[in-house]
Amino acid sequence: MRCLINFGGGTGILPVPDAAGTGETPVPPGFYPRLEGADGCSHGGPGAAAKRTTAEPVACLNGVRAMGRFVALYRGINVVGNNRVKMESLRAMHERLRHHAVQSYIQSGNVVFEAGGAAENIARKIATRFVEEFGFAARVMVLPAVRWAALVRANPYTAQSAALPQTVHAGICDGEPDAEALRALLTRTGGSESFSVRAGVVYLHAPDGFGTSKFAAGMEKACGVAMTVRNWRTVEALAKILDGSEPSLPR
């Protein structure tokens, strides 16, 4: 049995040992991808020594799917006491969707997990199940870990986020934002903010605060596409959960 898997830098064929344990798995040293069989059971490398891939799986063969690492970003839950969702209930919902290694971070709705398939398909399944379980719709974006890592690396405000991370925000867009409209908005609002658009993300530096920023308030409408915003503390915390460097962050 073989599985086609993306190792980040390229794609290779991964032979999966049979029930008798015969055969070898020619993967890079220390790399043990999590696999999910057609029966829904997880199969992986040697326990805690396993190293997760940050790439989204590209295909599968013989009913075995490579498991990728993802983050789901919810919008519109637990806002000023409205649309309340307990994080333990949200994690349980993900587990019922056969997501693995599910972790949540703070109450605004950030869930890291492992799953098979493309991010867009996973997001659709999550949105459907969310309505069924909680009785209202919430917008959710799902990003593979490799894209989240790229988002962190592309930050143009590294000095500002290191000194005052609460002043830097990432607006993750469902499509390409309208940079010209954003520049026009910034001219109209005339505040102290600055922004940069890179690969579908609006990076915002708001030194006088996000909550009082007129630019931030009009940012999504100007973009012309759906957006969900996270401050840089959350961005970095999720990056640490995704790469396994800090697995015990507060829920």
Rank of each mutant, 00 (worst) to 15 (best):
Cys3Gly: 08
Leu4Gln: 14
Gly8Phe: 07
Gly10His: 06
Val16Cys: 02
Asp18Asn: 09
Ala19Ile: 08
Thr22His: 15
Gly23Ser: 00
Pro26Met: 01
Pro26Gly: 00
Pro28Phe: 10
Phe31Pro: 07
Arg34Val: 13
Asp39His: 10
Gly40His: 13
Ser42Thr: 14
Ser42Ile: 14
Ala49Cys: 09
Lys51His: 15
Gly63Cys: 05
Arg65Leu: 11
Arg65Thr: 10
Met67Leu: 13
Met67Lys: 08
Arg69His: 09
Arg69Asn: 12
Arg69Asp: 06
Val71Gln: 02
Val71Ala: 00
Asn78Met: 14
Gly81Pro: 10
Gly81Met: 06
Lys86Gly: 12
Arg91Ile: 03
Leu97Ser: 01
His99Ala: 02
His99Gly: 08
His100Leu: 14
Val102Thr: 00
Tyr105Leu: 00
Gly109Ala: 00
Asn110Met: 01
Val111Glu: 02
Gly135Arg: 09
Arg139Leu: 13
Met141His: 08
Leu143Ala: 04
Leu143Val: 06
Val146Pro: 14
Val146Glu: 15
Ala149Phe: 15
Ala150Val: 11
Ala150Phe: 13
Leu151Gly: 00
Val152Tyr: 05
Asn155Trp: 09
Pro156Asp: 04
Thr158Phe: 12
Ala159Thr: 15
Gln160Ser: 08
Ala162Lys: 11
Val168Ile: 06
His169Tyr: 07
His169Cys: 04
Glu176Asn: 11
Ala179Thr: 10
Ala184Trp: 01
Leu186Arg: 03
Thr187Lys: 08
Ser194Gln: 14
Val197Asp: 05
Arg198Asn: 13
Tyr203Gln: 02
Tyr203Met: 00
Ala206Ser: 09
Ala206Cys: 04
Pro207Met: 01
Pro207Trp: 05
Gly209Gln: 03
Gly211Lys: 11
Lys214His: 14
Lys214Val: 09
Met219Asp: 02
Glu220Ala: 04
Ala222Glu: 01
Cys223Glu: 06
Gly224Trp: 03
Val225Trp: 03
Ala226Phe: 09
Met227Glu: 09
Met227Tyr: 04
Arg230Ser: 01
Val235Ser: 00
Ala237Gly: 01
Ile241Ser: 02
Ser245Gly: 12
Leu249Val: 00
